[in-house]
Amino acid sequence: MEYLLTVMVLIGINVILATSFNLILGYGGLMSVAHPIFYAIGAYCSGLLAIHLQIPVPLSILIGAGIAMVLSFGVSLPSLRVSGDYLVIASIGFQLGILHVINNLEFTGAAGGLTNIPVLNEGPSRSLVFVLLIAVVAACAVMLVGWIVEGDYGRAITAMRNDEEAFSALGRNAMNIKIVLFAIGSGMAGLAGALYAHYFAYVTPEQFGIFTSAALLTMVVVGGAATTWGPLVGAVLLTTLPQAITFLGLPVSIMAPLQGVIYTTLVISFLFARPQGLTGGTRGGGGLEAWSASAAFRARRRAE
């Protein structure tokens, strides 16, 4: 039972992460892969505040999410100067740089990780309560993103994604949208990280590296980028599927890479066979090809 509840906690955390990543990447078209670093910032800041300053856990969770939101400027500011591949590479530099700092500082626990993080709640039904909490937070995250992308603001986001120059020519401020998207998405990732830290009481730097970026990309791609339910479906599917392998009783040295092979094969298959993901519709109706459906994008590609 405890195992099942733990898997459900992981599903909830991954839903928050994938949904917030989808807001930045899928809807905003902002090609940053540094999302896991805000997950890390939330986890480490919240954990360190609770350990060293004895700040109450709920408050430290909120502060952790807030710090992640503020530090999202580290990626949103570059997005004002560069885009596309350049933004991807800048975000990788940002992610690996911060991770390297965490990996080498004594007070963050260095490579060994941060241990003895105070848990959010205790008692016999600790996991069940936490599952309910994380389910509520995950549902709020999905609804928040759904609410943001609907209506006028959502149309402005789509317009900016499809043709930023035309969007700016109409007198709209793309800069504000980018900063807001990064701040909200990163804040949500920070919240997920803080919740993770105060449930498992232990975090290590290797949980937030480039492989986690790929795992989140997988969830968004397989579920369907730029769709409301896609990241949720992707997160649920890709958190539960690898768990099936654990029942094979394989040694850890085989199980971890085997899970990786399955993950990556799944993504590659989807990229070729169904780039719109499980929940995406035809071209323009979501998925990775949503951007290329825009007339401006097609014109730009032709010009290239």
Binding site: L25, G29, V33, I210, A214, A225, L288, E289, R298
Partner: peptide, 13 residues
């Protein structure tokens, strides 16, 4: 005529 993101994801994955 896939998007840049598709190519990026494929290469990294």
């Amino acid at each position: 005529n896939s998007s840049i993101l598709t190519l990026f994801i494929f290469t990294i994955v």
